[in-house]
Amino acid sequence: MEERTRTDLENLKKPNGSSVVSLLQEVQEKYNYLPEEILREIAKERDIPLIDIYSVATFYKAFSLAPKGKHKIVTCSGTACHVRGSEKVAREISRVLGIEPGYTTKDGLYSLENVNCLGACALAPLVVVDGKYHGNVTPAKALELFKMYTVHEKEEKEEAGCRCATAKELAK
């Protein structure tokens, strides 16, 4: 870990001192979250007060201090989505996964996020699963969509010799 961190930091050093935000964006890109020890290292190496880094890391929504799940589910709650019933959709997904937006399921499979507008308002309500946009979603459609993903996940898991609790529960 120590060794890896160091080389990463070397790579992160830029000639004209890139900003905290862009540093964190690079870390986030690489690890999919912001590991505490990396942030501490950056603070030390670049002589930035740790609290400044921590403030930025918690202020912006693109950063996460906890590891993200394998699949990223994003529900949009822009105005257009809202008037077309996105809240119901989000509540259903939240209920099925058993987590609130901003969290990851215990098995590390799904992360749920709620974004205030994804800019594809003509297709409201919108759900994005692993970067794929699904438009005109209703609570029932969301469940179908989700089943599709979990069944797929279950097959993968069964091949690997273990079972996914969520998939099992849903398959009934």
Binding site: E36, L39, P49, L50, I51, D52, I53, Y54, S55, T58, F59
Partner: peptide
């Protein structure tokens, strides 16, 4: 000192030390 600062934003904004642990500073 730079030991404490603001974290989060909006209604979730708080004042704390980094990672809510005792700060080295």
């Amino acid at each position: 000192g730079k030991a404490i600062g603001f974290v989060n934003r909006g209604i979730k904004r708080r004042i704390t030390a980094p990672f809510a642990k005792k700060s080295e500073e």
